[in-house]
Structure formats: structure tokens, C-alpha cells
Amino acid sequence: MAETIEPNVERVTAEGAGPVLSLVAASLVVGGRALLRDVDLSVEAGECIVVLGANGAGKSTLLRLANGIVAASSGQVHRLPARAQLMLLQRPPQMRRSALDQLRFVLATRGLPEPARSERARDALTACGLAACAERAVRRLSGGEQQRLALAAAWACSPRLLLADEPASNLAPAATRELERLLGELRRRGATLIVSTHNVAQAKRLAERIVFMDGGRIVEDRPAADFFSAPHSAAARDYLQGETA
């Protein structure tokens, strides 16, 4: 049974069956400006979707809506409960704690008791190549290490849906490859991925399905191979040309 948050607008889908995310004619208007218009999107478990588009196209807003950080102004949103999903932000969170403690904090918000909490946190750090940084202050880690720490949280929490908002936007190429490798690893462990990016090369490396956004709308929603070989819309053609030129 789905739990109703706001009648007719927001629903949290039951754990288990069905799509992990479903938006029907979802719009978001803030201060008279439409950030999302009539967005329809259905995501099945196990998919790997890349949300592609220029800056300001509405990619971040779409992810924030999916995550529940913002609520739709109209339309319907069915999403997983907060505990079943995790979002990687553009700027990785920096607490004034050690890397291990930040991870333990995330696990505590998921209700995982000690000593399992510490154990899982250490395993996740090791899996993400951060074992040596466990006791270091998060603020003293490099940008790449901080983003990997955010991924370690995803590793530790094993969310059914992982939303990543331009996770590589501040990373050097080597760190980006490492990030993509870890995203792939998480996917193999069963997570559904929705990753936003404006980087076409990255989208090609990651995506099975592309959701292309322009001006707050989903302009194209197709298998990645089809999208890249023959984009339907003029906006997507222009974008691909501009980005790869």
C-alpha cells in the first residue's frame, strides 16, 4: 500500500514491486518561474539512466524532485521512501568530522545500530579506496576523495535508487574514471542509477537510457544508442554538436 504524502501529488511507493520512480505531468514552479514542466518519467528497478542537458535545463531540479528535496507544484510523483534512496550532490557534503564518522552519521540516519554501523562504514571505505583516510578530517580530503566518500555512503547504505547530480563536475579525469567505476560497481550490487551530467562523453560511457532535458522539459527519453546515433529533437542535435565540437 502506497503511503500518501500529499493527496494527488506525492506518493511514496511501497518497497518491493513496481517502478522505483514515476512522475506523471509533474511541474515545479518557484517564484513564478517554471523549473520543470509536465515531466513524465518512469524508472524501473535496475535501470541506468543519464539525464543530459545544458546548464539550467532542469536536470538538478528533476533529481531533487525525485529525491523529495522539493515537492511538485502539480502532477503526480511516486517515489521510494527517503531511506531506500540516496542522492550524491554536486558538492560532496563536508562535516567537521573524520571520514569514518561522517559515514557512521549517514548510517545512523538509516537506523543502523552499532557495532554493525562502524563495521559497514569501514567496509565501505575500503571498497571505495579510502581505508587510509578513515581517520582524516573530511575537510582535509581532496575533491575526488570527498566525492568517493559520498559514494562510500551509497555503498554502505545500499540504496535501491541512487541519484547522482553531476557527480564529476569538480573532478579531474582520473578521479572521474574512478567515480564511474564505483558507480558501475554499485549498479552491479543492485542499485538503480539516475545520473545527471552535461558531459556527453560521460553520458556515453554510463547510460543505457538517456533522458534529454531542455528548458525544464524532457525532450527525449530513449535508449542511449538510439539517442546518440540519431537524436530526434533539434535541441538535442544542437547540444550534441556543441558539446562534441
Partner: peptide, 8 residues
């Protein structure tokens, strides 16, 4: 934003 996304 992070706290919001964690549903604190």
C-alpha cells in the same frame, strides 16, 4: 541540501 536529501 544534504540533510534534506537524507530526510533528517
Amino acid at each position: 541540501e544534504w540533510f534534506d536529501s537524507l530526510g533528517l
